[in-house]
Computed example of a mutant assay.
Amino acid sequence: MQISIFTVDAFTNCPFSGNPAAVCLLESELNEDLHQNIAAEMNLSETAFIRKLNPSDSFSKSSCFGLRWFTPTNEVPLCGHATLASAAVLFQIKENSNSVLTFKTLSGDLYARQAGDHIVLDMPLYPTTAEDSQQVKELVKTALGDIRTQDIRYAPATKKLLVRLSDIYERSVLEKLKVDPQAVLLAEKTGKVKGLIITLKRSVSEKAGKYDFYCRYFAPWNGIPEDPVTGSAYTVLGSYWSEQLGKTEMFARQCSQRGGDLRISVRGDGRVDIAGQVVIVLKGNLTI
């Protein structure tokens, strides 16, 4: 059995930066356990599986597909960068001519369209609620040490904890932060956190800076020590920072070692547009 597979660096215009995702095109149904086995073999933060919804569908002509995402250890309900990568494979490799692609996922329908040299994802927007700092005190202390926080929020729909660093800090503090993912995993006692967002507002000294805010993301609960660029995190960050900054159009930087840029457009219908660039770095076939 041969499966077409691609590696795509998402949220970047330079190879070997951004967030790499594997994308598999499934011509027919795949045995359930093979999804996880392939994702473990690829050993990237996410492997995406695009499947035809009907036997007569075409990757070049159809506009609606099924989409699932797997980390090396488990399936996840939402992934942004692997959705961006999936759309890139269909638009750029399969030359799909539809103006909008629809993906049927565990998080409902997601949409992708081309906009110049970017691909725009239409995704749900998830609000946050204030979090009792005492409940997550050990987790935050383990992740940040003595670094001061300004706000702590929780997004129940995504099980992501958002920790905002104090506005006194520069971007370099976030970039240099050393987080031990395994220690964070052990320090989470509530059982409700599956992802840790650490975010920071652009400092006053960056008046001419192009970014509105920065973040890093850790998900050892899903086998991902640090995710290089995390589209799903911005379904939460978009909601939070739009409220904090009073803006609906924002530009963000994820400050991992690989790094990536995202354009965020918060809409009034409970959705958010997340745009990024992609580089396809590998084309091949899996033999099973």
Rank of each mutant, 00 (worst) to 15 (best):
G268E: 11
S242C: 12
Q2V: 15
S17C: 09
F6C: 02
W221M: 10
D273H: 12
S133L: 13
Q244M: 05
V163P: 08
P156F: 08
L78I: 10
N43R: 11
E206C: 04
S60R: 11
R68T: 15
P225D: 03
K160W: 03
F59R: 07
N37C: 11
T199W: 05
N285S: 11
D167L: 00
K52H: 02
W69L: 12
W241V: 07
V184E: 01
L101Y: 00
L262F: 03
L282M: 12
D132L: 08
A252Q: 00
K104W: 02
F16I: 01
E188R: 01
L121V: 08
D212W: 05
T129W: 03
E226M: 04
R153M: 07
K247V: 02
A48K: 10
D261W: 00
A143N: 05
N74H: 15
D146V: 14
V184C: 15
D122P: 13
C255G: 04
E188G: 06
A82M: 05
M123P: 11
R153V: 01
D132E: 13
F11W: 06
N54A: 05
S172N: 08
E206Q: 08
P220W: 09
S203T: 10
L53I: 06
G284L: 12
V193Q: 06
V173Y: 00
T83L: 07
T128N: 04
G209V: 04
L139V: 11
S45K: 15
M1N: 07
L177C: 04
S28V: 15
R253W: 12
T129G: 07
M250Q: 07
V8Q: 12
F16S: 05
A22V: 10
F6E: 00
L185V: 02
H35D: 02
E249I: 13
S239I: 09
R267Q: 14
S17N: 05
R253F: 10
A48N: 05
Y169N: 06
P228G: 02
G276D: 01
C64E: 11
I280W: 01
K210Q: 05
S265K: 14
G18Q: 04
A208F: 10
C64A: 10
E95L: 12
L174C: 08
S63D: 02
I93N: 12
T129R: 14
V193C: 06
I147Q: 04
L286G: 11
K94R: 14
S172W: 01
T73Y: 04
V163I: 11
V100Y: 00
Y211W: 09
P225G: 13
A39G: 03
A157K: 15
D167W: 03
T248D: 06
P127A: 09
